[in-house]
Design a protein around this nucleic acid. Structure first.
Length: 256
DNA sequence: ATGGTGGCGCGGCCA
């Protein structure tokens, strides 16, 4: 079983990339972020024709998440409990007995800004939700664009990024709190090539110069973490014509 | 060089 996450930065633009990628990746679950589509405009039939079920929660212009799966999604949740938030950033579903939580964590814009405060508040709310979900699901995966590079090894130039948004200590502390709940970062379960990232800025030829960050993650509950046998970042779609600024992160699991 | 590109949607916001 393969599960993946990909911030597509507009599904309208990137739908051909998604269907192309699905043809060879053989993913059973694909979590998308930044679909930037209202639900009425969601291309469900194209995805269903590709052999996938799909659940989605979108809004105009910004944000929006969707979860594609070869098995049907059950018990869908599209909001963090207790958080009155019009921004569509979370989509939880149970797929083949696994609780799959797809998140587009706020970017935060700049340390100390209003959007940064919103990010930390949003993360507090996510932590409470995860704590709750872990009580009822031994198989749980949290996949998405976290907008957090957890450690210096996830940053092309740690000194340049020191205390900047995506790398600041309060953000990293929130990531560690997720680890503290019993979740494991499956990418770091395995030996990895240094300087492998999941996002590169469109500006300043970021991808060509590998000026990236690893901000897209797959965190798993103990049971799912133990079942993970591989995790890779697939850089191929970032090289395609008119790419997203993110590329897919993929994890493979054996049956528990 | 202290910027740059890209998406949305048509001016400016967001990343």
């Amino acid at each position: 079983m393969k599960a993946a996450t990909w911030n597509v930065n507009s599904l309208r633009v990137r739908l051909p990339h998604v269907t192309q990628w699905l043809r060879t990746a053989q993913a059973n679950i694909l979590c998308l972020q930044e679909t930037k589509l209202v639900d009425d405009d969601f291309p469900a039939s194209v995805i269903e024709d590709a052999g996938y079920h799909v659940a989605f929660s979108g809004q105009k212009t910004y944000n929006g998440v969707a979860t594609l799966s070869t098995s049907p999604p059950r018990d869908i949740v599209t909001a963090l409990p207790g958080l009155d938030d019009p921004q569509r950033r979370v989509l939880a579903a149970t797929i083949d007995g696994v609780r799959v939580i797809n998140v587009y964590i706020p970017n935060g814009q700049e340390v100390g800004s209003e959007k940064y405060q919103y990010k930390l508040m949003w993360l507090e709310s996510l932590l409470a939700y995860l704590q709750l979900e872990l009580k009822s699901h031994t198989q749980l995966m949290l996949l998405g664009d976290f907008n957090i590079a957890p450690a210096d090894e996830d940053v092309h130039d740690p000194e340049q990024w020191r205390d900047k948004v995506l790398c600041s200590e309060p953000e990293r502390a929130m990531f560690q709190q997720m680890i503290g709940l019993g979740l494991g970062d499956v990418y770091r379960k395995f030996d990895q090539e240094p300087d492998t990232f999941s996002w590169w800025d469109y500006r300043a030829a970021g991808f060509r110069r590998n000026l990236g960050l690893r901000i897209d993650h797959i965190l798993c509950s103990q049971e799912s973490y133990a079942a993970c046998v591989e995790c890779v970042i697939d850089k191929a779609p970032r090289k395609w014509e008119r790419p997203s600024d993110h590329t897919p992160v993929v994890a493979e699991f054996v049956k528990p």
